[in-house]
Amino acid sequence: MPSETPQAEVGPTGCPHRSGPHSAKGSLEKGSPEDKEAKEPLWIRPDAPSRCTWQLGRPASESPHHHTAPAKSPKILPDILKKIGDTPMVRINKIGKKFGLKCELLAKCEFFNAGGSVKDRISLRMIEDAERDGTLKPGDTIIEPTSGNTGIGLALAAAVRGYRCIIVMPEKMSSEKVDVLRALGAEIVRTPTNARFDSPESHVGVAWRLKNEIPNSHILDQYRNASNPLAHYDTTADEILQQCDGKLDMLVASVGTGGTITGIARKLKEKCPGCRIIGVDPEGSILAEPEELNQTEQTTYEVEGIGYDFIPTVLDRTVVDKWFKSNDEEAFTFARMLIAQEGLLCGGSAGSTVAVAVKAAQELQEGQRCVVILPDSVRNYMTKFLSDRWMLQKGFLKEEDLTEKKPWWWHLRVQELGLSAPLTVLPTITCGHTIEILREKGFDQAPVVDEAGVILGMVTLGNMLSSLLAGKVQPSDQVGKVIYKQFKQIRLTDTLGRLSHILEMDHFALVV
């Protein structure tokens, strides 16, 4: 994948999101292997301009796509893939009243899908469409860049269908997702969380590099694949309309690839034109409109599966009536509230959605109805927002919020430890010299600072030695090549209790 991002070429006709291997024109390309080798690009942008032909009021008969309808489940399912879809609609009884809503608040519980998330729908649909058009064949390999849930859905379907599955996901995604993927037989590649989507090191860039190296491999490409919004247009939206008897006044959905909100909203605009569509985008993402909503100094966020630093091709923002931004604290607070007060075992993005819903639905009156999409299960986040310690460490809970008995030293300040200034190293000294210094002084790690004293990161003896043994660096290389740029900081005025929580999850903390 090139470091400079080429513009994806656009073909003359058809839909841009065809499933299957992508040609340089962004659509299915038939021909000899030699032709494909000559024409197939190194990668295709996940934010390529959409060429979708959908228009409100256009006859369904003019759609270029294969459409399906929700099917009634048999008493005995032939395999677990038949437990994807037909998820329950559940009334939220307490939270709406707590925040003064007059309307009825309903939750579409997508964590009841077989793999635990709304992404099971698009995973199965992308595979079925690729099999139907002859792209996927027995023994082929599926590769997908994902925040985890699409990966789980694909790995689940691949396990049943017999495909090899490789999932490329950023490091910030939970260990629970990784464990589930491994249990399903998927191979996992992790990428830096802070890598831009168009960087060769991003999950998108690495996935395309693997595709170019592995024979008979395919990126189904949830960011561009029409099967993504079509899955929701054909099934999720129809289920909502049936469950609500066609009567709903507002739908609120958090947005990642945009397939969920695009597919549902398009069908609702056709069948229930008075329904307002509300999009939820986390602070630090750029999906919301108008652009002024996205202006923030924050560039990272903890909530998973929603928000991006690019506009995915499948996201149709014209069908969203209003956007709201959400933050991590309210997302996790509301997710825990949904679990504790409503018994809905949902993930953090569901918290984002409901946090926005109780604001947006203030305009609705008694007798009206708001539906929220709860995308995934708490299963993926047992060591994250479900953990009091994690919430404390991230600053989303305060010590006084917890009532468990603490040891005698818990409320003492870090400054009472009488710490001395640490050994520091410059980023320009060599790895070999740094190892000598650390061994001589008896230290395992040291902060790396520039000549102005600005902290650049941390270097550890173990990481340097393993990097040297693996051949990633040489003793003569500058130590700046092996620094940890993500590390926890703590102030002298913070409590030892807070430091204790940090050290339970990290090997060190830097006192500043």
Rank of each mutant, 00 (worst) to 15 (best):
K177V: 05
N93L: 14
T68P: 10
V90A: 07
K108F: 02
E131C: 02
K211W: 06
V10F: 12
K94G: 11
R224C: 08
C109K: 05
D238T: 02
A253E: 08
A114H: 09
R125P: 11
A71I: 13
A130W: 02
K36G: 02
P138D: 05
L154E: 05
N216C: 12
K39I: 06
P170M: 08
N228V: 02
C165M: 07
V10I: 13
P49W: 10
I44T: 09
E104T: 04
C272W: 10
G162L: 05
E187L: 04
I219P: 02
I214A: 02
R182V: 02
S63G: 02
K271G: 06
P2E: 15
I143P: 02
E62N: 14
F112Q: 08
E187R: 06
E213S: 06
G246I: 14
R18F: 08
G185L: 02
I166G: 02
V10H: 02
T235E: 11
S61Q: 12
R196L: 09
T257R: 11
T236E: 02
N225L: 04
I166C: 02
L220T: 02
S217H: 02
I127A: 10
R276V: 11
Q222P: 11
E213G: 12
F111V: 02
T146G: 04
K83L: 07
A60V: 10
L154G: 02
Y223A: 02
S174R: 02
V160L: 05
P16R: 02
T141M: 11
S123V: 02
P138W: 11
G263S: 04
I261K: 02
A130F: 05
P145A: 06
I92Q: 02
R196F: 08
I219V: 08
I95K: 02
N212R: 14
R132W: 04
K36I: 15
H232E: 04
T5G: 08
K172G: 02
R18I: 15
G256V: 02
G185Y: 02
K108S: 06
Q242A: 05
K39V: 08
A226F: 02
R125L: 05
Q7W: 02
L181H: 12
T235H: 02
R209P: 02
E131S: 12
A130P: 02
A253D: 09
V252E: 15
R190I: 06
E128G: 04
D238R: 15
D221R: 02
A130E: 06
L268K: 07
K72A: 04
T141S: 09
D140H: 02
E37A: 07
N149G: 08
H218N: 07
I152V: 08
K269L: 04
N113V: 04
A265W: 06
G205L: 02
Q222C: 02
S3M: 09
L42K: 02
E104L: 02
L77P: 02
C275E: 02
E110H: 04
R190V: 08
G258W: 02
T68S: 10
T235I: 11
T135V: 07
N212G: 14
K36V: 02
A207L: 02
T262L: 05
L220W: 07
K267L: 10
P74K: 15
L210W: 06
A69W: 02
K25D: 13
L154V: 10
E176N: 02
S199I: 07
A207V: 02
N212E: 09
G20T: 09
V118H: 15
Q55M: 15
